[in-house]
Design a protein around this nucleic acid. Structure first.
Length: 479
DNA sequence: TGAAATGTTGGGGCG
DNA sequence: ACGCCCCAACATTTC
């Protein structure tokens, strides 16, 4: 027996029908269910017109609309401020309830509070369902009944609690309750209508849940080798599913189910990959319990660090952003980001370490740049990753653990294959020389057609001295 | 999910 | 054969 007569499913970061917690619940509780996606004008206003992510979302929304139509329903699409548009639409459609997947970002929580009160003022309900994560809020607490701050014990508790949390079978949904888009609410919502254009270099990953499933199937063939290949940016090691997880075109439960089963069957690759998925849950949890991390260091004492600022620092930051630091692995990483919107995880650590430790620039500036450029940008994971690298976060690497960009390059791109891909002007250097052109004999440079300072920049800092400066900068924490 | 600095050991060259 | 030195290789400590 359904609880409500008419309902509205509001899709946000869960652009799929399969294994969608809020949609499942809405279908079970409503006799008739409308569906909507809002291109939130409040968010879109700050994005450039050719933002890759907007066209990816647009494609994914089209796919979702198609899937809903095929099931006998439909997707209402709007370009508006969501906090107003949802209550208005609820009134127009005379629904009793609005369902959505819960969002843990502070701004989204605020928006959902507004939507909730606006709906309740008119006697409608607003139901948020856990969908983005496996464990949320207080579902995993430590012995003192407090949120975990260290990853390893969190992971152990997570793994122990998992079997009870994940349902192994998804029951069939009453899709016949889906309602098509009523003629009087249909509106055109093409990219151009919203002031956006298709980017010259769109996200290369296929959008929509169909794109996600194809990618997942392909990754499963490589899963067992994940732990061996994932750290080498020249290899096809990662799942590349992050952008799909970001927009919910694939379900985290589906991924975890697969990873857990393979791990139980003895796959070391699956165990390592599952650990990465747990990191994702961990950072969602941290953001939920400690929302101050969006503005300040998780560890308050790290706020007393004085970062480099002024024209010289601005110049260094610019060089970092554009991939002109003179450190090939860092520059290749940043050029991959700028050209594709993706950066390999190992390179994210190297680039973040370089900005904060070698250049002494505030992690928040790097975080903001990644937020603008990463296809898979997610506040919780991006903030967690940056604070980890900057040593300011919970369970961060100790501040004295400083990456040497040349050592990292030699270790993880030994043949320079990745560097050559993104810095073709260095391609002529030998495998040995390509990691540090400034140490290369003059003749070898000349033979490779390189002139430091004109074809490729000299190193922007001396790592050994930058390291000492960083230790002194962070040393203030000890006193 | 470091790397540098420092300490220790042992083989080999050499007088 | 022996002591001495050098230094690579490895281990431990430190940041």
């Amino acid at each position: 027996m359904a609880q409500f007569e008419r309902g509205l499913m509001w899709f946000r970061r869960d652009l799929r029908i399969d294994d969608n917690a809020a949609l499942s619940e809405a279908l079970l509780q409503c006799e008739a269910l409308f569906c909507v996606f809002i291109f939130d004008a409040d968010i879109l206003a700050s994005l450039p017109p050719d933002d890759r992510r907007v066209s990816f979302i647009h494609d994914s929304v089209s796919g979702l609309a198609h899937d809903l139509q095929a099931a006998g329903g439909g997707l209402i699409v709007r370009h508006a401020a969501a906090c107003k548009a949802i209550p208005e639409l609820a009134r127009l459609l005379k629904v009793d309830v609005v369902y959505a997947g819960r969002d843990y970002e502070p701004q989204a929580c605020k928006r959902d509070d507004q939507v909730s009160s606006a709906l309740q003022r008119e006697g409608r309900s607003f139901v948020l369902c856990k969908d983005q994560v496996i464990f949320e809020k207080n579902e995993l607490l430590n012995g003192e009944n407090r949120p975990y701050r260290v990853f390893t014990p969190y992971k152990n508790a997570w793994l122990k609690a998992l079997p009870a949390m994940i349902p192994s079978v998804v029951s069939a949904l009453p899709l016949s309750r889906l309602v098509p888009v009523p003629a009087h609410v249909a509106q055109p919502c093409e990219l151009e209508d919203m002031g956006f254009t298709r980017p010259d270099h769109p996200i290369v990953i296929a959008a929509g849940s169909r794109g996600a499933q194809a990618l997942f199937v392909d990754f499963l063939l490589r899963l067992d080798a994940y732990h061996q290949s994932r750290d080498f940016p020249a290899l096809k090691g990662p799942s590349y599913l992050s952008v799909h997880l970001r927009f919910g075109t694939i379900s985290i439960r589906q991924l975890v189910r697969e990873a857990f089963q393979s791990m139980a069957a003895g796959s070391a690759g699956a165990a390592t990959w599952l650990s990465e998925l747990i990191w994702r849950d961990f950072y969602f949890m941290i953001l939920y319990h400690f929302p101050h991390v969006t503005e300040t260091c998780f560890k308050p004492e790290y706020e007393s660090i004085s970062w480099e600022s002024g024209p010289e620092a601005d110049c260094c930051f610019e060089a970092w952003c554009t991939g002109k630091t003179g450190f090939p692995i860092v520059d290749a990483a940043m050029r991959q980001l700028n050209q594709t919107g993706y950066m390999h995880n190992r390179l994210r650590m190297i680039a973040a370490s370089f900005l904060t430790k070698d250049l002494g620039i505030d992690w928040r500036r790097g975080e903001r740049y990644f937020a603008m450029t990463l296809n898979d940008f997610d506040l919780a994971a991006n903030n967690g990753g940056w604070q980890w690298a900057a040593s300011t976060g919970c369970d961060a690497q100790p501040y004295f653990r400083i990456f040497n960009p040349v050592e990292q390059s030699r270790k993880f791109d030994a043949q320079g294959r990745f560097i050559r891909r993104y810095i073709p002007e260095l391609a002529g250097l030998s495998d040995k020389d390509i990691h540090a052109p400034w140490l290369t004999p003059k003749k070898a440079l000349k033979d490779a057609g390189i002139e430091l300072g004109s074809t490729y920049p000299p190193p922007i800092v001396d790592h050994a001295s930058a390291r000492k400066v960083a230790l002194a900068r962070y040393g203030i924490i000890r006193n």
